[in-house]
Design a protein around this nucleic acid. Structure first.
Lengths: 224, 224
DNA sequence: CGATAGCTTGAGAGTACTCAAAGTGGGTGG
DNA sequence: CCACCCACTTTGAGTACTCTCAAGCTATCG
C-alpha cells in the first residue's frame, strides 16, 4: 500500500483473491514480528496478503531506514529483481500470506489467468509508487499525514456511520519512515489534527476521522 | 533512470536492445520538446529509449510537479496501469524510441524472449523505484545531488581519463522536481560542490566530476 | 507492579524554502 | 552578424518548517 492520489477510477477490486486451485500452495501464517523474507534473500515466491498487515523496509548503511510499503489484504508483495528480494518483510500483526511461485509471474504457460493477475499487480505497483514519489518529494508533513490517513480510511476503515475508526498496527516511527518524516513530527502533526478536531486519537493505534472532508482537503494541500 | 544506491552487482547490460525481428516496429523519432504521450492517454505500447533522453512527469492539481524519472538509452518506459499512461513523457533531446506492443508484455505467446525481457524490466523498475524512495525520503540536498551525479556519471559519463564530463540535458528545475528540491537549492548545492572543487561546472549543461571518490562519499552521507 | 519501549511535548537549531533581484546565455529577428 | 529579448540560472536575505536533543509521560508486558 502506498499513499496515492485519490482517483475515483482506480478502485480496483480490493481483496480479490488470486488463489486458483491450480496454483494453490499452503498459506503462510505469520505472527506479529515474524519475518517473511530479508533483503538479499533469493526470491522464490511472491505473496498476496490475505489477512493482517506487513511492512517492507530498506536500510542505508548508516542506519537510516525507509519503509517502502505496508502490505494490506489484497496487496501482492515480494516482486523480485534479478531473482532477489530487495526489502525486508516483517509482519506487524498475525498474518496470512498466499504464496505464488515465480514461474506464474514469469510465464503464462501453466496458468494464464494467474500470470495476468500478477503482472497487472506489478504494473499497478509501479503506478502507485509514482504517486508515492509525489508524496515524498513534494508534500508537507500535514499533507503526508492527511493523505496517509485518507488512504487508510478508504482501504481499511470500518464504515460505522459518520465516524471511521482506523486501526494503525504500525508504530509512529514506521509511519515516519514511510512518509519521510521523524517520529516527533508524526506525533506533533497528529496532535495538531486532533486539536483541530479533524481526527480523534482513540488510542495510540486507533484513530477516528471526524471530518473526512477537511482531512481530504488538507491532503490536497489546502492550507486551512 | 532513478537514483539508486550503488551496488556492484546490479550492473545489468545497460543498452541491450530488445528489438527482435519478430516484434520490430518502426522506431519513433522525437525532437527536443516533443511529447511521446500524456498522462491519461490509452497505453498501446511500451518503449525502449534507443537514443536521447526523455522526462516522465506527474502533476498535482495546484501545479506542483514531480519528475518521476529520466529515460536514458536502454531504459524501458511507458509501463501502463489499467491500460493508461500515468505520466507525461517529453523528450529533452532529439530521441529515438523503440516501441513494443503491449501484448508482448502481457503474454509470452508470440515472443517469449521479449516477454521475459519486458517483464524483467518492469521488475527492475520496481526495485529501482524503491531505492529512489530512500533518496526522496531520507537524503539531504547534498546527498541527493551527489547521488544523482554519481548515477549519471556511471550511466552516461564519457570516460576521458581522470575527468568525467556529464551532459545534463535537463534544466535545474527538472533536477529539482526529480529530487524533491527547489531550483534554488539545486543551484546553490552545485555551486557549493564547485567551490569545494569536487565538480567543475563547464557550462550549465555540462558538469565535470573532479573528485569522484569525494562525490561518492558525499552521496553516502559522509559530512565532510 | 515495576521495567521498558514507545509516544508526546518542549526548546532550540539548521536546512531548505520563499521572495527578490541580478547575471548569463541561447535564439530570433532586424 | 549583431543586438536584443526572454528564459533560465545564480545569488542574496529572511523565513518557516522540520529536525535534533532532551525530558516527561503512557502503555504494555513480564
Amino acid at each position: 500500500m502506498y499513499v496515492t492520489i485519490p482517483k475515483n477510477q482506480t478502485s480496483a477490486a480490493p481483496i480479490a483473491s488470486l488463489a486458483s486451485t491450480a496454483a494453490q500452495t499452503t498459506e503462510a501464517r505469520l505472527k506479529a514480528g515474524d519475518y517473511l523474507y530479508f533483503e538479499g534473500d533469493n526470491a522464490e515466491r511472491v505473496y498476496q496478503v490475505m489477512r493482517g498487515v506487513v511492512r517492507l523496509t530498506r536500510w542505508l548503511a548508516d542506519g537510516r531506514r525507509q519503509v517502502i510499503a505496508f502490505g494490506y489484504p489484497g496487496d501482492i508483495i515480494g516482486f523480485p529483481s534479478d531473482g532477489l528480494h530487495h526489502t525486508d518483510c516483517e509482519s506487524l500483526t498475525d498474518a496470512r500470506m498466499q504464496p505464488f511461485r515465480l514461474c506464474h509471474l514469469e510465464s503464462c504457460e501453466s496458468d494464464p489467468k494467474l500470470h495476468r493477475a500478477l503482472l497487472q499487480a506489478a504494473l499497478r505497483e509501479i503506478s502507485a509508487m509514482q504517486d508515492h514519489f509525489m508524496m515524498l518529494g513534494r508534500k508537507s508533513a500535514t499533507e503526508k499525514l492527511a493523505s496517509f490517513l485518507c488512504v487508510l480510511a478508504e482501504r481499511v476503515g470500518e464504515d460505522l456511520g459518520a465516524y471511521r475508526p482506523i486501526n494503525l498496527p504500525m508504530s509512529r516511527s514506521d509511519i515516519a519512515d514511510f512518509l519521510g518524516l521523524t517520529t516527533e513530527t508524526v506525533s506533533r502533526t497528529l496532535t495538531q489534527l486532533r486539536k483541530s478536531k479533524i481526527i480523534a486519537i482513540d488510542s495510540t493505534h486507533t484513530i477516528i476521522i471526524q471530518k473526512p472532508t477537511a482531512l481530504l482537503s488538507l491532503s490536497l494541500g489546502n492550507r486551512d
